Simulated scan of single mutants.
Amino acid sequence: MSTSLELALACGEALWVGDHACRGLDITLVDIAAGSATMSMRVRADMVNGHDLCHGGLIFTLADSCFAYACNSENFNTVAAGARIEFLAPARLGDELTANCNQVQQGRRSGVYDVTVINQAQQTIALFRGNSHRIGGHLVESENL
């Protein structure tokens, strides 16, 4: 019998195997537990837009990725049903962004998760809310843990 933390770690590892988007953007999974995750990303030169700011779509990608790991951390195959983001401050070249996601509500099929994206100075860059939908099946076989 595995603990919820062991299961969350195994789910994170299972997702990471095929997560070419996160690896390509150098997004790192910092922490994962049942219903939560933390990920980080350093803003590179190829992530900066014409205003010399981190492209909002990449901040969204960091938040959305963190949401994905959190809502799959309990070993139910889960996808996004919707998401929205509020940009509160700009991120700049060289900033180290950290996304922290926490489960707000999880029902049998649908869930709500909040993500806060901060920079290295602890300034809030964005707030993201994601709605999840469990589609059936599992990421890992829990008896193998």
Rank of each mutant, 00 (worst) to 15 (best):
R23V: 14
R23E: 15
L25Y: 05
L25W: 01
L25Q: 12
I27Q: 06
I27T: 10
I27H: 04
T28S: 13
T28I: 08
L29D: 03
L29V: 11
V30C: 13
D31N: 06
D31G: 02
I32L: 01
I32D: 01
I32F: 00
I32N: 00
I32R: 03
I32T: 03
A33W: 01
A34H: 11
G35N: 13
T38L: 00
T38M: 04
S40T: 14
M41E: 15
M41C: 08
R42P: 01
V43K: 11
V43I: 07
V43E: 07
V43F: 04
V43Q: 12
V43P: 02
R44S: 11
A45V: 12
A45T: 09
A45D: 10
D46G: 07
D46F: 05
D46C: 06
D46V: 07
M47L: 10
V48M: 01
N49V: 05
N49P: 00
N49W: 02
G50L: 03
H51R: 15
L53I: 08
L53A: 13
L53T: 15
C54M: 07
H55Q: 07
H55A: 09
H55K: 07
G56E: 13
G56F: 04
G57A: 09
L58K: 13
L58M: 14
L58I: 10
L58Q: 09
L58W: 06
I59M: 10
F60V: 12
F60E: 11
F60D: 12
F60H: 12
T61L: 14
T61E: 09
L62P: 00
A63T: 12
A63S: 09
D64Y: 01
D64M: 02
D64E: 06
D64T: 11
S65V: 02
S65T: 13
S65G: 14
C66G: 03
F67Y: 04
A68E: 14
A68H: 03
A68F: 01
A68S: 14
A68C: 09
A68K: 05
A70H: 03
C71I: 12
N72P: 00
S73D: 15
S73R: 15
S73M: 09
S73W: 03
E74P: 05
E74G: 10
